[in-house]
Each structure stands twice: as C-alpha cells, then as structure tokens.
Design a protein around this nucleic acid. Structure first.
Length: 290
DNA sequence: CACTTGACCTGTCCGC
DNA sequence: TGCGGACAGGTCAAGT
C-alpha cells in the first residue's frame, strides 16, 4: 500500500504527535513484528523518549534518545495510528477515522506513552516489520546503501534521474520505476500515474526512451507525488494517516483503478493488464508501445 | 550480473 | 448462500 506520499504523510502526522513522548510499555506479536533481537525490544523501548521521526524511501525511522532507532516498513497493509488518552477515534474528529476502536483485529504492536496516549501498528497481511537498531548503523545497512535517491529532493536533477536508469536498459520502464535501487519511493500507483502523465507505455524498454521522454517522466513523477502528499496520499483500501483518516489522491487519479473509464486527456477507455508482475493501468491511445 | 517469478499473509470480490 | 480462485498499494529469496 503505502508509497512515498503515504509514508511521508504518516511521518508528518507522527512527528507532530509523538516527538517528546516517553515510552511506558510495549505489546507486540514478536518475533513476527520485530525480526531482530525480539527479546530486547521492550527493554530498549521502555523509558526512551522520541526525538525525531524520519523517512527514507518507504521506510520510517523513529529516533530514540538512547541512540537506538525503530525502523518501520508498512509494506502493503500497514497502518500507524496515534490515539490520545481516552480517544476512540482521533483528535477532535469523532467518528472521522476510517478505523474504529483500537487495538483491533489487525493490531500487531501497541506502544503506550507515559501521557496515556498510544501508537498502534496495524497490519492485516503481516508483511510489515519493525526493527530496532543503533541509530548510527542505519546508513550502513544493505537497504540504505542500495536505495536510490529521493525523487522530491530539491537537488535531484533530470540528468541524475535519467542516469539512474542506465544499468536497467533492458527491462521495462515500469519494472525499473518500481526498483527501489533506481529511484526511492515509487510504487504501483504513482508508477502508473506518472507514466500516463508522461505518455509512456509501461512496457517500453528503458533503453528505448528518449531524453525528452525521461524528462517528462521526471516532471510527472515529481508533480504526481507532490500532489499526492498534498492530498494526504491514496486510500484504496487500508491506508490511513496517523489520525486514522483516509487520503484523497484517488479522487484525482487519472488511470489507476480507473479501468473502463475514460482517459481524462483523450476520452479513450482506460484498460488494465499485467506488467512487471503488477496490475497496470494505461490509456491505450496516449501510451503506445511503439 | 540482470531479470523474472514465487513466496510471504489475510481479506475481499467475482463467477459458478 | 457457499465455495474456489484471483487479486491486492511491497520486497525478498530463489530461479533462469
């Protein structure tokens, strides 16, 4: 589920709410939620206070004042929802949350803070994980060394974008976009949306794209992701922000999950098929293979 | 090495 | 209404 815009939305919501709080207790379905050092997790967390919430690609990092960090990946169905003490639904918005009382059936980890508030990690499909590790080690783990640049950073240039694809010349542009070592944070929704914007068929080989097409894709990817952050991400099924509320980007989607509807640019019927192993949506008129 | 496929899980939807 | 199969926004470990 969550791609860069969704994870960034969660990060912002959590940063506002949990920085400065002190962990009082932790309940989790270890070792499934904490694949590393499960026995130590509670001991490291209880008594620690939260000093920052960061994001890299689709991974969240909650930094603690004991020089450890909690790395969290939501994968397909993960949710991180904050509730103040006694709140059933979310700050100042009774019944506004997409989800009800917590913990619920999908809750895997509950972190209680000393002020009586809670952070719930829900994850229906159980693909997500949390890892506790020394903060200083984060930049050296495999994922961080291999992951590509943040596409929304101000210093990320069209030239760098194009260069990142050079070693994937023989694969499809969609598979390359989804490859986290090429560019960070792109998932199925924003891959389809940006390819539509750039008028590029997802199965075009990377090596066949012109500099102009790369440039369009660069611009579209950034504008689509920025719009998605502005709209609080995409909620198709499970995704919610730190308040348990849905994101509204799907109201603005041009092709994703719109098969059978009209292309907003030319009116042709949008079709769905499988590409790079994923459900893929295109306008067959705007996005041609050759 | 580069690339593709299956596996990890649970829930939901669709056709029979 | 029940049941089997396909499918779901992400990533790995395997395979070719």
């Amino acid at each position: 589920m969550p791609e860069l815009p969704e994870v960034e939305t969660v990060r912002r919501g959590l940063a506002e709410r949990i920085v400065g709080k002190i962990v009082k207790d932790v309940n989790s379905d270890t070792p499934k939620s904490f694949p590393n050092a499960p026995a130590d997790v509670t001991a490291f967390l209880v008594g620690a206070s939260i000093i920052a919430v960061r994001r890299r690609a689709k991974v969240l990092m909650v930094d603690l004042d004991n020089d450890y960090s909690l790395m969290i990946h939501l994968k397909m169905t993960g949710q991180l929802v904050y509730r103040a003490e006694g709140e059933a639904f979310g700050a100042g918005h009774p019944n506004d949350s997409l989800i009800g009382n917590l913990p619920d059936k999908s809750t895997r980890v509950t972190i209680e803070f000393t002020d009586g508030s809670h952070l719930y990690f829900n994850d229906q499909r159980k693909f997500g994980w949390m890892k506790l590790l020394p903060s200083i080690e984060i930049p050296h783990i495999d994922f961080m060394r291999k992951v590509g640049p943040e596409p929304l950073e101000a210093d990320f240039t069209p030239q760098e974008f194009m260069d990142r694809f050079s070693r994937r010349a023989k694969t499809s542009i969609k598979a390359a976009l989804l490859d986290q070592t090429v560019v960070a944070g792109v998932g199925n929704i924003y891959a389809d949306e940006s390819l539509w914007g750039a008028r590029i068929h997802p199965q075009r080989l990377v090596g066949s794209l012109s500099p102009d097409e790369f440039h369009r894709l660069y611009e579209e990817l950034r504008s689509v992701m920025n719009l998605a952050i502005e709209k609080g991400g995409s909620t198709d099924k499970n995704y919610v922000n730190a308040e348990g509320k849905r994101g509204s980007y799907m109201d603005f989607a041009r092709v994703f999950r719109r098969e059978g509807k009209r292309c907003p640019r030319c009116g042709t019927t949008i079709v769905k098929f499988k590409a790079a192993g994923r459900g893929t949506h295109i306008c067959p008129y705007c996005q041609k293979l050759s």
